[in-house]
Nucleic acid binder design. Structure first.
Lengths: 195, 195
DNA sequence: TGGCTGCATACATGCAGCCTGTATGTTACC
DNA sequence: GGTAACATACAGGCTGCATGTATGCAGCCA
């Protein structure tokens, strides 16, 4: 048994938090949030429940940390796929495909579309998502359709369709068909404006 | 203290089950399934936990009974709004509005669109839904668009949009806007066929 | 500059309360 | 007398907290 290397507190905290978030993500994906116990999480992360409750207020806070990481990666993927050089329509298409691709990361649909809303409710999830996919979609749609009273509602409905497509694909649905159907939907909705 | 009126076993079972389903529905809607304990349920239903576990295998079975009742009422509302006399397009529109109206029953969106999928997963929920809204939509769409490979995917995406609309309306969204946006979506998707 | 002292941070462990599901006991129907 | 419909008691597990311990860290003084 070696005497542990001397590490700064910041370093210790970071690795512990990281271990907890990664371990819980894997378990939440595998068994679902509700079916995952904190003893399981800490066993997988090779720490104790004391460490968990030191770094996170409760079990929900752990899920929140996992979700925030997922949203951040999602947002990064979409931003990267939609450089400012693209015009509104191009950006909408590219962003759409990037969203579906990013949501194909294993477990992401369950975390962001199933367990997240179940635990925090759709309202809070939309707030977390704000800066991410749904926001981009609404902006893109507004750029093409103007800002009539129907546009926010349409954006919300299309966002739900996106989520369903991602979920269907991740559960074995026909990815090609869903991607095509999603693009067709957008095409139809934005037809007749801006060329 | 009166000696209780003599009742048949069937009658006893029916009233007890009914009391449990009604009480749990109210609590599941108010606090969510996970946050509702069986002691609370039986207290509200004025029975004991013994009665609950006599009639239902576990807590999930109680939720399932609640959901089945909701689906049945939903299906009845849609069927009633779409008599065979209507043509495909008329039926699609009428069924759509009936769906949104039926989902406006307080608590129904939370039960069918949030807690249900969280507990049973989308797959099992679709099975429960089988005969109900999603199926009608796919048939209606197929009647208008034929049966290309994209039609099932499109139906699924539109179904998700319907759910989002219902959810948004039930959480204070602009009902008029969402209804209009939903109809616009259907209009766009089915435009150019069948007149 | 280096070591010592006091404090804060990062954990570990034990406990209280609640909840679920089951097993066993009792009452009402048949 | 037997069975279905309940009622009650119990076992196991889980969450969150409270208390205990060790490790890093900051200031002080020499």
């Amino acid at each position: 048994m070696q005497p542990r290397a001397r590490r700064s507190n910041d370093e210790r905290s970071a690795t512990t938090r990281q271990a907890l978030v990664s371990a819980s993500r894997a378990l939440f994906v595998e068994k679902g949030y509700a079916q995952t116990s904190t003893p399981e999480v800490v066993a997988a992360a090779a720490v104790t429940r004391g460490a968990l409750y030191h770094h996170f207020e409760d079990k929900q806070a752990l899920l929140r940390a996992v979700l925030e990481r997922e949203f951040a990666e999602l947002r990064r993927a979409i931003d990267q796929a939609t450089p400012p050089a693209l015009d509104a329509r191009e950006a909408l298409i590219a962003g759409s495909l990037a969203y579906l691709d990013a949501m194909a990361v294993p477990g992401r649909t369950r975390l962001l579309l199933v367990d997240g809303p179940a635990v925090f409710g759709h309202a809070e999830m939309m707030a977390l998502d704000e800066a991410s996919a749904a926001g981009s979609l609404r902006e893109g749609l507004a750029a093409l359709l103007g800002d009539g009273p129907l546009v926010p509602a349409l954006a919300s409905l299309l966002s739900a369709a996106f989520d369903r497509a991602a979920l269907a694909i991740s559960t074995g649905g026909d990815a090609k068909a869903y991607r095509a159907a999603m693009l067709a939907l957008i095409e139809r909705v934005t037809a007749g404006v801006g060329r």
